[in-house]
Design a binder for these strands. Structure first.
Length: 233
DNA sequence: GCGACAG
DNA sequence: ATCTTGTCGC
């Protein structure tokens, strides 16, 4: 009855080869929860990663911004920097960004109640985008809010903010093509982990105060590219 | 074989 | 993602 020593959750392994990464994703996808399962949501964190510090490549700088979900005021920020090992491969983005992203989130003074990522959730070939993977790895409700499509088909959503059309992969709805702001390209919202699509859309709209990107992600994106105290040079 | 392809 | 100037529009 001796139990395996390295039962290290498959979804917490980042030092893998591209082929192993695909195997990990299949495990993660099976553990993702697509319905609402969370207590009170008081805070939300946005995370994003930027690369190539001062022209050089190979460095990942991740930023996490914690906001009050009601007022959307900033409560805390965290920035970390480390070498980027895994290359960018469509479908395997998580393995390139996760180490830095997790470090940035761990750097926040408290765990957020919800996580919004700059990328897909289950709107992924294997239903395992970065938002879903991070949500499971950190055991946090999460939402994927990508600026462009990875897979699936859709019709152009209504022009008014709040309008959306289903993102489909065959007959399966994997996300929503959402107009968060008039006259701008729509966002691709999808379930990350423990948050239904309907709730995800509502939360993203709540966080998108007249802007194309929801505040958590917008601020994290800005911070990762322009750190206040240059972690750059 | 020929495209498509989160960040 | 990143490399880059000016420019159109609210």
């Amino acid at each position: 009855m001796a139990q395996a020593p390295d039962v290290a959750a498959a979804w917490c392994r980042w030092d893998v080869t591209p082929k192993e990464a695909v195997a990990v994703q299949r495990q993660v996808a099976a553990a993702i929860e697509r319905t609402d399962r969370f207590a009170a949501l008081r805070t939300v964190a946005g995370v994003d990663v930027a690369y190539g510090v001062r022209g050089r490549g190979g460095i990942a700088r991740a930023a996490a911004v914690l906001l009050d979900l009601t007022t959307l005021s900033v409560l805390a920020e965290s920035v970390v920097q480390m070498p980027a090992t895994f290359p960018y491969v469509p479908g395997l983005l998580t393995f390139r960004e996760a180490p830095a992203a997790i470090a940035a989130i761990d750097g926040l003074p408290m765990r957020p109640d919800l996580l919004i990522c700059d990328g897909q959730g289950i709107a992924h070939p294997r239903r395992c985008g970065v938002a879903s993977h991070l949500g499971l790895a950190l055991d946090l409700p999460s939402i994927g809010a990508a600026k462009s499509r990875l897979c699936g088909t859709h019709l152009d959503p209504p022009a008014e903010p709040g309008g959306w059309t289903p993102l489909l992969d065959g007959d399966e709805m994997i996300g929503a093509c959402l107009r968060t702001r008039a006259a701008t390209r729509p966002l691709f919202i999808s379930i990350g982990h423990r948050v239904s699509l309907a709730t995800a859309v509502a939360l993203v709209l709540h966080c998108s105060k007249g802007r194309r990107l929801p505040e958590p992600t917008r601020l994290a994106d800005r911070l990762s590219k322009h750190p206040k105290r240059p972690e750059s040079r």
